[in-house]
Design a protein around this nucleic acid. Sequence first.
DNA 1: ATATTTGTTAACCATATGGTTAAACTGAAT
DNA 2: ATTCAGTTTAACCATATGGTTAACAAATAT
Lengths: 203, 203
Amino acid sequence: MTKTKDSKTEHIILDAAKRVFQNKGMDGARMQEIADEAQINKAMLHYYYRSKQLLFEAVFKNAFALLAPQLNSILNDKSSVEEKIRNFTANYISFISKHPYLPTFIIQELNRNPDFVLQMKGKKGFPNIEKFKKQIDVEIREGILKPIKAEQLFINIMALNIFPFVASPLIKAFVNIDDKAFKQLVEDRKTEVADFIINSIKA
Amino acid sequence: MTKTKDSKTEHIILDAAKRVFQNKGMDGARMQEIADEAQINKAMLHYYYRSKQLLFEAVFKNAFALLAPQLNSILNDKSSVEEKIRNFTANYISFISKHPYLPTFIIQELNRNPDFVLQMKGKKGFPNIEKFKKQIDVEIREGILKPIKAEQLFINIMALNIFPFVASPLIKAFVNIDDKAFKQLVEDRKTEVADFIINSIKA
DNA sequence: ATATTTGTTAACCATATGGTTAAACTGAAT
DNA sequence: ATTCAGTTTAACCATATGGTTAACAAATAT
């Protein structure tokens, strides 16, 4: 059994760091807490990841890499706009229900350090709107869709799908519901949101 | 000139604290930085606000008090649903363009400490969906609107209006635009978003 | 078997940080 | 002028925190 480059410990650390950073953010997280979470000596964190900043970046990139393909599906898939919206909405909400921390974490940390996104932008697999733009224009010309800017539509799709997870404490308070009812509301959105969007843009 | 209860210094501190907390969040903010920002001795912060936590709460409540009336306008005004949506969208985007930090700050800190919202919930002026719910049901019965749950519609309105500000670094990267183009995109949303929503829900 | 590299630990260090204190200053009331 | 409450400052304190080190253990190579 050859030793894998990523040691077991290294993985345990990343996993613990994920949990802590996702809950507390970069500023709120403590190296000792990550070590405790991993049931490991604090020095190991530095042994494998050198610094808090680098450990954080590993976690962030990991999280981003999980999210990006989701968005690419709506930007680059071959199906029609309507199909894409229906698929994306259902899939995305399922996906995030399994990782409810993800969008909040990414958005929070990107606001803390907007330059961070520039580092990602170059890499392949980074979501890009160009293909989607062309597709929208084609479907408008074909009379399938009402005129709308692809940028605005894309923002709307993102907003309707992501926002409820980012703002859940606020929504729960305003709508005056508990966790269970909120979960049901989100579940309903798997079709609600797609209908809402398509209603609006279909010619 | 009688001395006002709120001293000048107290106000200067709150103002500086706003700027720092909004940019760095509770965890990222430093008392020394706030003192520097206010050009004042650090001990004054404790003299007037006792602790970082209390100073933070003052800032947070202040921010929340600014945001709440905006949401109440859509929940409690007398006009028709369509009018409300058009007004709210235009007003809200104008409002936030002047306070771009607000939604991100509130959402971020509420996620850090969800119990915080419960403390606000009791107070009068806290946004509540009940009236809006009834209005939606009436307009559906009258055939003005297609059937939709008030909760979902409210979430959609919030999402479409608030999300672009919360996720601006992400959006700028995906849509591949600079600050100026983003500002224009947001400006366009003052009518875009209302049209998008009304398109979808009007019978 | 022995040397060498890799992994792990406890103790330690420098600095940052929220908070305190005691003395000094200010301006108005006596 | 003196008192007195409210305000401001510099110095200080205890603790938390990210990071390092040196010794030790386990695995791997020679």
